[in-house]
């Protein structure tokens, strides 16, 4: 089958869907207590009061769902940012969108701890602010790809410093400061799933509807405008969507870098740059990557857990360097 044929792309997407199921079951099965696949289904279907039911229902099941949703959001966010910023290295973590979200989210947690429900909204504004500053710094008669990265690194450092400062001064008020900085799925359960789920669903629907617009935007601003795309409005709405996806992920598990870099890139290498196929493949692969990494982070040094962000950084940093050198 030809690598760029429609059939190949669809086959790849089906393969990823199978992998999602496999990784999901693997994550539920593995841990200090191993649980067989058949038993997993049994305890999900009915509450028999067993310890296994408790482990699956209260801990592993929501955690794997959350891992998948976070993976989808961050991967889609990266795929969108790479398109609108015309830069293959754009990733919400690297260019500071996540730090912006993190700082604003944390600010709500420490200053208005009674208004926790606004964390995601605040995180979204932080992410948008970061994106806005990046555009402002990098815009010079069009977006210069290299300036985006430089501006992004600066923005990331700035907001990162803000987060560290907040965590130092209010360490008593922020639970699990360290896990926030490294992104961790530890002790996350159904409430977090509920927080992020609407954004994931909305994100998937919107990217599928508007994939073609992003395909046109990557032809270049002039060409896109020439064939009738409202370039400014498209870029703004996609940036907002990317910010929202990243912000919702950050507000439930903290800063998890590199997912938005590794996933869209690997997908692009395999099935090419057509966003109609890239988006679904990216979403599925994002889910696979975070579920696998988290299962690994949870089991490799069992009973000690390492934050999934550390696993991701170990995978992502070399990948980033490889892309820079290509």
């Amino acid at each position: 089958m030809r690598k760029d044929s429609r059939g190949f792309k669809i086959a790849f997407i089906i393969l990823l869907s199978v992998l999602v199921v496999v990784c999901f079951l693997l994550g539920n099965a593995k841990g200090t207590i191993e649980i067989g696949v058949k038993r997993i289904f049994e305890v999900i279907m009915n509450d028999d009061g067993s310890t296994q039911r408790m482990i699956i229902w209260n801990i592993r099941l929501p955690r794997m769902i959350l891992a998948a949703l976070v993976g989808v959001n961050l991967a889609l966010s990266g795929a969108i940012l790479q398109g609108v910023m015309n830069n293959p290295l754009a990733d919400p973590g690297i260019i500071g969108i996540s730090s912006g979200a993190g700082l604003f989210g944390i600010a709500i947690l420490v200053i208005f701890p009674q208004h926790q429900q606004f964390v995601t909204i605040a995180a979204f504004f932080g992410a948008m602010l970061a994106a806005f500053i990046i555009y402002l710094l990098a815009w010079k008669g069009g977006i210069q790809p290299i300036r985006i990265i430089l501006a992004g690194v600066a923005v990331s450092a700035l907001f990162g410093a803000g987060i560290s400062g907040t965590l130092v001064f209010y360490s008593d008020r922020v639970y699990g400061a360290l896990t926030f900085m490294n992104g961790s799925l530890s002790a996350r359960s159904w409430p977090e799933v509920q927080t992020i789920l609407p954004y994931t669903i909305a994100g998937i629907i919107l990217v599928m509807i508007f994939a073609q617009k992003l395909n046109i935007l990557i032809l270049g601003d002039d060409v896109a405008r020439g064939i009738g795309l409202n370039v400014e409005a498209t870029r703004l709405s996609f940036t907002a969507l990317a910010a929202l996806l990243a912000a919702s992920a950050v507000s439930v598990i903290g800063l998890l870098g590199f997912v938005g870099l590794i996933v869209p890139h690997s997908v692009r290498l395999i099935i090419g740059n057509d966003y109609k196929y890239m988006f679904p493949a990216t979403a599925l692969f994002g889910a696979v990557l975070v579920m696998l990494s988290d299962t690994f982070a949870r089991t490799v040094l069992s009973p000690t857990e390492i934050p999934v962000g550390i696993v991701m950084a170990v995978l992502g940093a070399p990948f980033f360097l490889y892309l820079l050198r290509r």
């Binding site: 398109g83 395909n215 032809l219 270049g220 002039d222 060409v223 064939i227 090419g272 740059n273």
Partner: peptide
């Protein structure tokens, strides 16, 4: 765009259409 089309000088693209 329905009345006027444009061809610019540099058309480098990330797209693999």
């Amino acid at each position: 765009a329905k009345k006027m089309a444009v061809l610019y000088q540099s058309n480098a693209t990330l797209s693999d259409a």
